[in-house]
Design a protein around this nucleic acid. Structure first.
Lengths: 198, 198
DNA sequence: CATCTAATTTGATACTAATCTAATTATAAA
DNA sequence: TTTATAATTAGATTAGTATCAAATTAGATG
């Protein structure tokens, strides 16, 4: 993480209203007006703070009708804090070990849930393993390319019959982004990572 | 840690100059003018930023003649980051486990390095254990009370002959603070903690 | 289309903060 | 005591930001 991003992360958390906002969201998603009321601020102010938090990737948003629901992105909150420490204290090692442990978990999930021909035998029930399986598939999509819904369905069907469920999971866990029926891969940094999931 | 302190911590890190300052200090202590030059800012600006970092307990200072040397306080940098995460994500457990492991380490150091009559048999050579021994003794001093150098020497001699070394270590690791030959215990939060030392 | 609701954008205000120069203070050395 | 060096404080400038009310936009529903 470069300097400016780190500054943005700390700026995002350097405000009591935003910290309280994250604290509330940690209990579950809330829509704009509910936040305004609980924080005792106006709706435009909620929008303002939400923008700052979104820029630092600390929250996610989903729209249902004309209501926007906010939720936190715990992965980024932890990751950014760790990145700061690593940067300041010149650390580079530690995380890599974690990474290695996770790499072998990834291998085992891929080996057990995907058949030799590459198809997904079964959608893992365990949250962490499900994320690994989703990521494994998402990695085969082209970054930057726009996919129609039909193309996405076709892509997923290479792996599993239940394309609707998997497509929904792709969106829900931020592997992909949908706008006007067009799907696009999110940057990898945005993917909900399984590495820190308990 | 309460909300306002957390805000102060993040404000302290929400500035590129201060982050670069900490980054430099992680390599070793530097005095004001050296910092001004390396960061390409004026000396007053260094003072300004140092004040912010000091308020958040992220750096320490020591004066030699009329030169002030700054150094980082890695313990607080890590601790504050962790505290933020715990606050936002409502975590309370994790750290406590660490704490417990450390408690038993503390017991073992106290058992092995201190005699039955309470005297320190030997100053531990291992850094972490040395800190534990120092803390064990420092805990017996009265918070808020001013001690003369003679009183401190007497106090230490209860434990070990080499009062000069131990007195120096008390200062160096921020257990105590000296001004005009008067010694005083630092608040416990300032003590260099062995818990996170590797 | 008209209407309703929720959210965002705009524009204003008040406050905070980063930086500099100039003046002052602190400490030591001559 | 005078002089020198390093740091801090004061004061000014500039840039940024938290907040709200008012206007606008987005999306659904009758």
């Amino acid at each position: 993480m470069q300097l400016e991003k780190m500054v943005a992360y700390h700026k995002a958390l350097a405000d009591p209203t935003r910290l309280r906002m994250l604290f509330l969201l940690a209990e579950g998603e809330l829509h704009g007006q509910a936040l305004a009321e609980k924080l005792n601020i106006s709706q435009p102010t909620v929008t303002h703070h939400a923008a700052k938090l979104r820029e630092a990737a600390l929250i996610k948003e989903r729209r249902d009708k004309n209501t926007v629901y906010f939720s936190i992105n715990p992965y980024f909150i932890e990751k950014s804090a760790q990145a700061t420490i690593n940067f300041i204290l010149h650390k580079g090692g530690e995380e890599r070990m974690d990474h290695q442990v996770n790499e072998s978990l990834k291998e085992s999930v891929v080996r057990n849930f995907f058949a030799k021909d590459g198809r997904l035998k079964q959608i893992p029930a365990q949250y962490k393993k499900k994320l690994i399986a989703l990521q494994h598939m998402a990695e085969q999509l082209e970054p930057g390319r726009s996919y129609s819904e039909k193309e996405i369905n076709e892509f997923i069907k290479q792996y599993h019959e239940d394309f609707a469920t998997i497509r929904r999971e792709f969106i829900m866990h931020q592997f992909m982004y949908r706008e006007d029926g067009v799907y696009e891969l999110n940057p990898r940094e945005m993917w909900t990572k399984w590495e820190n999931v308990k």
